[in-house]
Design a protein around this nucleic acid. Structure first.
Lengths: 115, 115
DNA sequence: CATATCTACAACCATATGGTTGTACGTTAC
DNA sequence: GTAACGTACAACCATATGGTTGTAGATATG
């Protein structure tokens, strides 16, 4: 059963956001604890602006949220984004399982014929 | 527990391959049944070469396999690629769940303090 | 053999991506 | 008020991506 109703664009953004090691690391970090954008930037060997862009990509993909706190912007992980992506992949596995079942049925029918 | 041991590059390729609607559709199709590359190309409103490139991306990501049969190249879905990606996402959910548990513990400890 | 089919691959183009530096602006601290 | 901090955003660059057309090789079919 499909519960998600994600547009193709949303799914594109989800997987595209996950297709970068730095961004996956950011997701893991902010699922564990809050970070400011500059706090995140300290963790990586790249400019603040680069990290800022990664966070923006993750935000557009609904994998993190940003919330202003004073002069800082707090980044938090958004687990339902992760869950949506996982459920998508579950559906592919389901498709595959159904094919296996179908093939098993066919083989069973063949066995019947041979009786 | 991590069982996968996928390199960052492999994961990059996996998610990158899934970040395109045409490629996701190809994966779904070849999980259900075999297709030749030209058979796949008929399904989409783009050139044969474009579909060929998409299949190549999926192959590098271990989401499909190609096998020559006469002059055709048969494409099949590779479910373990899908499963690897899903397990990756499971790990993120696990990270998140552990944080929730930790926060719950802290709240419980605070409640203790107030007694 | 001749022809049609399926694939491979190169060359090209427009746009997207991942990075940089520089500038500007709001917020906190002294 | 001034300086330092955190952020936003523009401009720029190199490379990757998703598409095209064209050419060539291998395999089947008449």
């Amino acid at each position: 059963m499909v519960v998600d109703m994600l547009s193709e664009d949303e799914v594109d953004r989800l997987f595209q956001a996950l297709a970068d090691a730095t961004r996956r690391d950011i997701v893991a970090r902010v699922l564990i604890a809050e970070y400011s954008v500059s706090g995140l930037a300290e963790q990586y060997d790249m400019s603040f602006a680069a990290v800022q862009k990664h966070v923006a990509v993750l935000e557009r993909a609904s994998l993190v949220t940003k919330e202003r706190r004073g002069r800082e912007q707090i980044v938090r992980g958004q687990v339902d984004g992760v869950q949506k992506a996982r459920r998508l992949l579950d559906e592919y596995e389901e498709i595959w399982r159904q094919r296996v079942d179908r093939i098993t049925d066919i083989l069973a029918a063949d066995a019947q014929d041979e009786d």
